[in-house]
C-alpha cells in the first residue's frame, strides 16, 4: 500500500499553497488523457480512458425492461424510473490498495452509488425520445459496467468521463413493435447493423464528475490528483457538472476535516468552469473521430 511520511506531506502541501505541485502542474491543471471508443464489439457501446497511469474501461449493454404494474407504489415507481444501472469493479491487480476484499467491495459500491446519484435526475437523457419502446410498458435499460484496470489517482473523474464517451458511442437497434390480436406485444429487432439509433445527440445533458481535493490551507484545492497527492488530502468534494453548467451532484468524501462554507462556494465555482471546458474539449475530440 502506498504510504507517505509527514515531511513529504509537508512538501506537497507547501507546493500546493504556492500553486506549484510536485510534478510541476498548477492547481487547476489536468493531466493529458487519451480516450478510445468502440473497442468492445459485443457491447452496445464502450470506451477506454487513460489519464497518465489511471486506466478505466467502460462497457454499455442495453436490455429491454418491462414495467409490469402500472399502479405500483412509490418505491417500485422509482426503481422503474431508473434507466441506468451502474456497476464498478476495481480489479485487485489495479493497485495494492485493493488487496482487502471487504474494503474493495465497499469501495466498488461507493463509486457505483456516486455515479448513480449523478445520473439520478430524469433530465440526464431524454428518455421519451431515445429509450422508450412502448411508453408506459417497455423501455431500454442501460447497464453500465466500469472496470478499473490501473489506478494513479482521480478515479471518479476518469470513470464519469469514460462513461460519457461510452454513451456517445452506444447504438441501440431499431425495434418494430407488433401487437397481436390478443393484446400480446412482440418485438422485431432489426438485424441490419446500419439500422440503429445512436445516442450521440442524447448525451447533451450527461454530466461528468470533477473532484476537488482540499490540501493544506483551507483555500487551496487541486483537481486531478495523483496517488501521492491523494494521501495528503484533508477532504474531497466531488461535483457533477453538465454542459449547461448545471450542478447535478455534490458529495463530500474521504475527509478527516470539514470545509468552510466559503471554500465550498469557491470550489463549486471552479468546478463549473473546469467541467464545462472538459466537456467541450471532449465533445470536439469525439466528433472528429466517429
Amino acid at each position: 500500500m502506498q504510504k507517505i511520511s509527514n515531511t513529504e506531506i509537508y512538501f506537497i502541501e507547501n507546493g500546493i499553497n504556492s500553486n506549484l505541485r510536485a510534478d510541476g502542474r498548477s492547481r487547476n491543471d489536468y493531466r493529458h488523457f487519451s480516450l478510445e471508443t468502440g473497442e468492445i464489439i459485443h457491447a452496445s457501446g464502450s470506451a477506454r480512458l487513460k489519464i497518465s497511469d489511471t486506466e478505466v474501461l467502460v462497457g454499455v449493454k442495453a436490455e429491454i425492461k418491462e414495467i409490469k404494474n402500472a399502479q405500483s407504489n412509490n418505491d417500485k415507481q422509482q426503481e422503474d424510473l431508473k434507466r441506468f444501472i451502474f456497476t464498478v469493479d476495481c480489479c485487485q491487480s489495479a493497485s495494492s490498495e485493493f488487496t482487502e476484499q471487504k474494503r474493495l467491495d465497499q469501495y466498488n459500491i461507493e463509486l457505483a452509488k456516486q455515479l448513480e446519484r449523478l445520473y439520478s435526475h430524469p433530465s440526464v437523457v431524454d428518455v421519451d425520445k431515445y429509450l422508450t419502446i412502448v411508453p408506459g410498458k417497455f423501455y431500454w435499460n442501460l447497464c453500465i459496467d466500469a472496470m478499473v484496470l490501473d489506478s494513479d489517482g482521480n478515479l471518479l473523474d476518469a470513470l464519469s468521463i469514460a462513461i460519457r464517451a461510452a454513451l456517445y458511442n452506444t447504438v441501440l437497434p431499431k425495434i418494430k413493435v407488433i401487437t397481436s390480436e390478443y393484446q400480446e406485444i412482440t418485438f422485431e429487432v432489426s438485424e441490419d447493423p446500419e439500422d440503429v439509433i445512436s445516442l450521440k445527440d442524447a448525451i447533451e445533458n450527461v454530466p461528468i464528475f470533477i473532484t476537488l481535493n482540499q490540501i493544506g490551507s483551507q483555500s487551496s484545492f487541486i483537481i486531478d490528483s495523483t496517488l501521492q497527492e491523494e494521501l495528503c488530502i484533508n477532504s474531497k468534494l466531488c461535483i457533477g457538472i453538465n454542459q449547461k453548467s448545471m450542478i447535478c451532484s455534490i458529495q463530500k468524501s474521504s475527509g478527516m476535516e470539514g470545509l468552510e462554507p466559503q471554500t465550498i462556494i469557491q470550489m463549486i465555482k471552479s468546478a463549473k468552469q473546469i467541467g464545462v471546458q472538459i466537456i467541450s474539449t471532449m465533445d470536439k475530440a469525439l466528433k472528429l473521430n466517429p
Binding site: M246, G258, E260, P261
Partner: peptide, 23 residues
C-alpha cells in the same frame, strides 16, 4: 467551528439555486 463535514446533493440545479439551498 463553522465547518461543513458533509454535503450531498443529487439532481439538476443551477449554481444559484445550489448556493441558496446550501445556505
Amino acid at each position: 467551528l463553522n465547518q461543513v463535514t458533509q454535503l450531498v446533493q443529487s439532481g439538476d440545479l443551477s449554481y444559484n439555486t445550489v448556493i441558496e439551498a446550501v445556505d
